[in-house]
Amino acid sequence: MRIGIAGIAGRMGVLLASEIERAGEKLAGGTTRPGNRPPAECAGPLLVDAAALFAASDVVIDFTHAEEAVPHATLAARHGVPLVLGSSGLSPEQSRVVAESSALVPVVHAANFAPGVNLVLALAEKLAAALPAESYDAEIVEMHHRQKVDAPSGTAIAMGRAVAAGRGMTLEQAGMESGRDGHTGARATGTIGFAALRGGQVVGEHTLLFAAATEHIALTHRSFDRRSYAVGAVRAAQWIIGRKPGLYSMMDVLGMR
């Protein structure tokens, strides 16, 4: 299977190239920003643009930026090539275009491709269903490297959505409390709180806390190496081939729904 990588010269791109080889698949090539070149160990061709990448690939993995999600999803639909999308922080409009493209080709979009994180999300939904919002406040604390540009992280938002789903509603219906500062008043019942920490080169740490008057329950996932994301993304690329058009998640890839 020919797997293409958008952003092959980046940190994730290099790891993806390594995992594609380890999985016994073929690296179709990759794209990168002008002036960037992938390391020598990335043994696929450097393609001139994203259109050439989709034309040369059976499936494309994109871990670039939210701004690239729309053009890449559009190209995926135009070329009939499945897309594995790992960009976080998509706007409602960007998410809409990705969903429209998934009506023509299969798309796996996940905030986090690490298998462990997705297991944590499944547990978060089950815990939220069992712990009444009136008694258990949900708080999500995440920390990432100092270069990360969006907050809360996509994984933190996914945790919040899992909690809300367990309580039979959307995150928007539950309400987000993020970036508290000054005299904010008492915490509203049923809302989901977010705190974002940035510093150093932390790959990713997420803790979901259910806090009641009589007990606290904490669910934590720590990533020590970005390779876990690459492993999951290549697994998703192998899984998506032959699927019907649709918008899938890592939960689908892991057979959890």
Rank of each mutant, 00 (worst) to 15 (best):
T64W: 01
T64Y: 04
H65N: 15
H65R: 15
H65M: 13
H65D: 13
A66M: 09
A66W: 02
E67C: 10
E68F: 13
A69W: 01
V70K: 10
P71F: 11
H72I: 08
A73M: 12
T74K: 14
T74L: 13
T74D: 11
A77L: 07
R78V: 07
H79Q: 12
H79D: 05
H79E: 12
G80F: 05
V81H: 01
P82G: 08
L83Y: 03
L83E: 02
V84G: 03
G86K: 00
S87Y: 02
S87N: 15
S88A: 13
S88E: 07
G89H: 04
L90N: 00
S91G: 11
P92E: 07
P92T: 06
P92A: 10
Q94G: 15
Q94P: 05
Q94T: 07
S95V: 04
S95F: 05
S95C: 08
R96Y: 08
V98N: 01
E100S: 13
S101T: 08
S101K: 05
S101I: 05
S102L: 09
A103M: 14
L104K: 14
V105Q: 02
P106E: 06
P106H: 07
V107F: 06
V107A: 06
V107R: 00
A111Y: 03
A111G: 15
N112M: 09
N112L: 09
V117N: 03
V117C: 10
V117T: 09
V117P: 02
N118E: 11
N118L: 09
L119T: 08
L119A: 13
L119Q: 11
L119H: 12
V120K: 02
V120C: 10
A122M: 14
A122I: 07
L123E: 08
K126V: 12
L127W: 03
A128W: 00
A129E: 12
L131D: 03
P132G: 13
P132W: 12
A133R: 01
E134A: 15
E134D: 15
S135C: 12
Y136P: 01
Y136E: 01
D137A: 15
A138Y: 00
I140T: 03
I140G: 00
V141W: 01
E142W: 00
E142Y: 01
M143A: 15
H144Y: 12
H145M: 14
H145D: 14
R146W: 15
Q147A: 15
K148Q: 12
D150L: 14
S153N: 09
G154Y: 04
G154K: 05
T155M: 10
T155K: 04
A156F: 01
I157H: 00
I157L: 14
I157M: 07
I157R: 01
A158E: 01
A158R: 00
A158L: 05
M159I: 13
M159D: 01
G160H: 00
R161Q: 14
R161A: 08
A162V: 02
A162T: 02
A165G: 05
A165Y: 02
M169S: 10
M169Y: 07
L171G: 04
L171Q: 05
E172K: 12
Q173D: 13
A174P: 05
A174D: 05
G175W: 06
M176F: 07
M176K: 10
E177W: 07
E177L: 13
S178L: 10
S178P: 03
S178R: 05
G179V: 06
G179E: 08
